[in-house]
Design a protein around this nucleic acid. Structure first.
Length: 521
RNA sequence: GGCCCCGUCGUCUAGCGGUCUAGGACACCGGCCUUUCACGCCGGUAACACGGGUUCGAGUCCCGUCGGGGUCACCA
């Protein structure tokens, strides 16, 4: 039997990080065994603009490289892949359930139902619908309709016995049927609800393994009930632990952003992303741009593989030491047996560590290719770039090393791309390194002369020259390095000064020092 | 509250009865390196929720307690 899994998001307008992990596990499980991964859109409830709300989800999945064998845009033999376009199939299933005596027409009003619920709560017993407005015959139905009531279709759930699920991750789970409700599967207006639609589609699309988050565990009994009464073979179920909030075991949710922002690491990740977005001139509201939403990582310049590698380890592990997985290795090693049961909280710092490591391992050319678009969007490099951009950026990246953790970090080195006269100086550093220390400016004047006269402008030779300069002036190296750095880059920090000088070249260094001296005069 | 799930360092985890004086990773704390900020290197702190069983032997099996979470819609 070929393995077929599915990811079934509803069009919400964004792709949640937890959703990506669910998609990833489905994708790995199917693809690792030569099976198919299906994308289905659960839009039974959608009154909104589906196209618009779906686009970011499709885009996000493509960005992380979780491609689907069947679904929107690619089609497939079991389409359509939008639940809103499959209503007839659901209606047929409802009819079948009705005929099999597994469902019934019900005419209770919302108020009547609520009254029963309240009564149950007052009496301190669990709510079980009395089935008082159930139409057992067509005549009943006509009579109730004549009263002006509207009918829905409910599942006729058994009131005794036990349901036993053999979950691939959680093992045996038992639930009393009596604790299940007679769930509505079709509304008065004829539209169908999620549980029914999922069952029909999972069967229709020949899904072999339903891999989804734990919050669906309690939905499984009613779905299995429908599978069985519809005469469908049962797929295997695997309920993943959910992804929890940073520093907590509560389910991660987009709605609680304010709370997460109080978490130091989360706030830091967010701030880092926002500072890059600002420099790109991106208008970003926290609502649509935050670390819970996948788009955030793309905008800031994360590597999809690093994100996925991190997510893979959130609830799964291979052994006691392997942490880095390429796409192929993930496919080769992933298994449901090694998925954990306990929820795993989202750790921003570990994600960043994975990203940083992946970025450093990237071949130089690819890193340049990742970074250049950010320079272009920040208007620091033209589009298309001049032909000397690649070698120039390569030099910067090599010198910056892991200071460029995400592609957007290249903007920290904007001083390499601005014209001399546009260079902005950090006032505090200017004060500390040039204005305040006695003789600092005079020293810089002399150093500038040495730079003007020195023969080779390579980093290694500049270092030798500088050491000689330090010695002949009887100063410490720190006395000149900091002053020179702020004069040339405008900043207090950066990578090695000699690399900086060499990359910028003699003309720019001399001009910038000159300007710094004038400003501080 | 009912039902269900879960419980090893701060976090992600390894552990499937003896090899556990509990291993790895991120974070944290020292030290070294150093022109700043990083990196790197060396070292360190830190966990089996608790209580009963079972067993020669329990982090590992069973029960209970406690704690955390999920879910209880004409949402998905």
């Amino acid at each position: 039997m070929t393995v077929r899994t599915r990811f079934a998001p509803s069009p919400t307008g964004y792709l949640h990080i937890g959703g990506v992990r669910t998609a990833l596990f489905n994708w790995l499980f199917a693809k690792g065994q030569g099976g198919q991964f299906i994308l289905r859109i659960d839009d039974t409830d959608a009154q909104r603009n589906v196209e618009e709300a779906l686009a970011p989800i499709l885009h996000g999945l493509k960005w992380v490289g979780l491609d689907w064998d069947e679904g929107p845009e690619v089609g497939g033999p079991f389409g359509p892949y939008y639940q809103s376009q499959r209503l007839e199939k659901y209606h047929a299933a409802v009819r079948q359930l009705l005929e099999a005596g597994a469902a019934y027409r019900d005419y209770a009003t919302t108020e009547e139902l609520q009254a029963e619920r309240d009564a149950a709560q007052q009496a301190g017993r669990p709510f079980v619908y009395s089935r008082r407005w159930r139409a057992e015959t067509d005549a009943d139905a006509r009579r109730l309709e004549a009263e002006g009531r509207q009918g829905v279709v409910r599942l006729l759930i058994p009131r005794e016995g036990q349901f036993v699920l053999n979950d691939l991750i959680r093992g045996e789970v038992r639930i009393d049927w009596a604790s299940e409700q007679d769930h509505v599967i079709q509304r008065a207006d004829g539209t169908c609800l999620y549980h029914l639609a999922t069952v029909v589609d999972d069967h229709d699309m020949q899904i072999s393994h339903v891999i989804r988050a734990e919050e669906h565990l309690s939905n499984t009994a009613r779905q299995v009930f429908m599978f069985e009464r519809l005469g469908y073979p049962l797929p295997q179920f695997a309920h993943l632990p959910y992804v929890a909030e940073p520093g907590s075991k509560t389910k991660l949710s987009k709605r609680k952003l304010d709370k997460y922002l109080k978490n130091r690491d989360f706030a830091q990740l967010m701030e880092h992303g926002q500072s890059i977005a600002r420099r790109l001139g991106l208008a970003v509201s926290a609502e649509t741009f935050n670390p819970v939403i996948v788009d955030f990582y793309e905008q800031v310049g994360y590597l999809p593989d690093a994100l996925l590698n991190y997510l893979l380890l959130l609830g799964w592990s291979l052994d006691d030491k392997t942490e880095e997985f390429s796409r192929d290795e993930m496919l080769k090693h992933f298994s449901l047996e090694r998925v954990n049961k306990a929820p795993a909280s989202f750790d921003c710092e570990k994600l960043v560590a994975f990203q940083s490591r992946a970025m450093q391992k990237l071949p130089s050319k690819q890193r340049v290719a990742k970074v250049v678009p950010f320079l272009q969007r920040a208007k620091l490099v033209t589009d298309p770039p001049p032909c000397d951009t690649a070698p120039y950026v390569t030099q910067i990246l090599d010198a910056a090393r892991d200071r460029v953790k995400v592609a957007g970090d290249i903007l920290d080195f904007d001083d390499f791309f601005v014209a001399n006269e546009d260079l902005k100086f950090d006032e505090a550093t200017l004060e500390k390194r040039l204005r305040k220390p006695a003789g600092a400016r005079d020293l810089l004047v002399k150093y500038r002369e040495s730079l003007a006269q020195t023969e080779s402008f390579s980093a290694a030779d500049l270092e030798k020259m500088t050491h000689a300069f330090v010695e002949s002036n009887g100063i410490k190296i720190g006395d000149i390095v900091h002053a020179a750095r702020v004069a040339i880059t405008g900043k207090a920090v950066g990578f090695g000064l000699f690399d900086t000088l060499a990359i910028l070249g003699r003309d720019r260094c001399l001009a910038r020092i000159q300007r710094a001296l004038e400003i501080t005069a």
